[in-house]
Amino acid sequence: MKDFKVKKVEKSLEKELQHKIDYKTKPLGSLGKLEDIALQIGLIQETLSPKIKSPTVLVFAGDHGIANDGVSPYPQEVTYQMVMNFLNEGAGINVFARQNGLVVKVVDAGVNYDFGSLGKLLHYKVNKGTRSFLNNTAMERIELSECFIKGSAIVNDLFEKGCNCIAFGEMGIGNTSSAAMLMHYFTETDLHDCVGRGTGLDNKGLKKKIGVLEAAVEFHGELEDWEKIMMAFSGFEIAMMTGAMLQAAENKMVILLDGFIATTAYLAAYKLYPEIKNYVIACHLSDEKGHKLLLEYLGVSPLLSLGMRLGEGTGTAIAFPIVNASVNFLNEMASFESAGVSNKE
């Protein structure tokens, strides 16, 4: 497995940054969460004047063998069809990213479809979908390693082109099942609390999904080793996101986290390198069951709670103006001294 150099954030500028935040023309602490984000990004970038450059949404797409075992009301073909929708700029993530000034790049991590040489698509396919984890491991160790290497390469390419802020989204029919299993094994949360309706299961469908995942737990038994858990249940898109997040942290980039699936990839990264938490901003609370408990486990407070559960990175794109506002007030808002305004003292 690829090693990463994820370091703790250097805090030598913390007092100066906090002073700069506190002495803007406003009551102390009155910008709430914006002040926390401004401090976090200033520390990540090790500057009193942080900037967001070339913000990019990476949408990782992959298929799951478990999708053929009745855990989703949608057929597996929807994954590649939605990838085409992303490339044609017709999906929710395209709308919100375009509105808020982010670039969307779509990664084929493991879609069960031959896209040929489509120019807009980032071709990093590991395989045409994972195996069903109902009666097998989802992937081989070499495939997991390949996900890390490719995720790292994608981020490094963006970094070298000037990007310092990456938002993570995904697409893959069946991936809420994969994420639920990873959450269950990594956090020891009761499986029923990890499993949600995904793409819109009714009560009967949800009961069947839980039954399938319970059978998978019985098949795999107790697992504690990180690699074995990922090999057993991860999707290619989730594993590649994990490697990409770790590379982004190594590069000291701002990481914007979407919903349940992306947070599960972050969970896997956190289990290896807890220091990654310094680089992550959780953008929203997904309505998918399990996400709230997962964020609480990770000690992360989301910026928004809008009842969304679309995935694709849509939560990051909706929250991005808030992140941008945090940097802008720090750089552009007058201080008491520069504005000639009397402070309370």
Results as ranks from 00 to 15, higher is better:
Asn251Phe: 06
Ala215Met: 08
Ala282Arg: 10
Thr79Asp: 09
Thr137Leu: 14
Glu35Thr: 03
Met183Trp: 08
Asn127Gln: 12
Thr176Tyr: 06
Ser12Phe: 01
Gln247Glu: 15
Ile66Arg: 10
Ser301Phe: 07
Glu160Leu: 10
Met84Asp: 10
Asn85Phe: 08
Phe96Tyr: 09
Asn278Val: 05
Glu46Gly: 12
Gly198Glu: 04
Leu43Gly: 06
Ala109Glu: 08
Phe133Ile: 08
Leu102Glu: 07
Phe4Val: 01
Val59Ser: 02
Phe4Cys: 01
His284Gly: 00
Phe115Arg: 00
Ala216Pro: 08
Thr242Ile: 07
His284Thr: 03
Gly299Phe: 02
Ile66Ser: 05
Met183Ser: 12
Phe96Val: 02
Glu140Gln: 10
Glu77Gly: 11
Leu272Arg: 11
Ile238Pro: 04
Gly211Ser: 11
Gly169Cys: 05
Ala265Phe: 05
Leu182Ile: 13
His19Lys: 12
Leu134Asn: 01
Tyr124His: 15
Ala325Gly: 03
Arg98Ala: 09
Glu296Asn: 05
Cys194Arg: 10
Tyr124Lys: 12
Ser152Arg: 15
Thr316Cys: 15
Lys128His: 14
Leu223Met: 15
Ala215Lys: 15
Glu160Ser: 14
Thr47Val: 01
Gly65Glu: 11
Gly243Thr: 08
Arg131Gly: 05
Glu250Tyr: 06
Leu272Pro: 00
Gly307Arg: 14
Lys105Val: 01
Pro274Cys: 02
Ala109Asn: 09
Gly205His: 07
Phe159His: 14
Leu191Phe: 05
Met308Lys: 03
Thr187Cys: 01
Arg131Cys: 07
Ile166Ser: 06
Ala180Lys: 14
Phe133Asn: 03
Asp190Gly: 12
Thr242Cys: 12
Glu227Val: 07
Gly221Thr: 12
Leu201His: 07
Leu293Lys: 15
Val106Trp: 02
Leu303Tyr: 09
Tyr297His: 15
His64Cys: 08
Gly313Val: 15
Glu140Asp: 05
Lys33Trp: 14
Met171Phe: 02
Asn135Trp: 13
Val6Glu: 00
Leu303Glu: 06
Met333Leu: 11
Phe186Glu: 12
Val6Trp: 00
Glu140Leu: 14
Ile276Ser: 04
Lys344Val: 15
Lys105Tyr: 06
Ala179Ile: 02
Asp258Glu: 00
His192Asp: 13
Gln45Phe: 14
Ala282Lys: 13
Ser335Gln: 07
Lys53Asp: 09
Tyr74Met: 05
Thr264Trp: 02
Gly211Trp: 01
Met82Arg: 07
Ile52Gln: 02
Val341Ala: 11
Gly290Lys: 04
Ala319Gln: 00
Lys161Gly: 00
Pro75Asn: 01
Lys11Tyr: 12
Asp108Lys: 12
Met253Gly: 05
Lys51Arg: 13
Leu31Asp: 03
Ile149Met: 13
Met241Ser: 13
Leu272His: 08
Leu87Pro: 01
Asp193Lys: 11
Asp3Glu: 15
Glu250Trp: 07
Ala97His: 04
Lys15Leu: 13
Tyr297Pro: 04
Leu303Met: 11
Cys147Ala: 11
Tyr273Arg: 00
Ile66Pro: 06
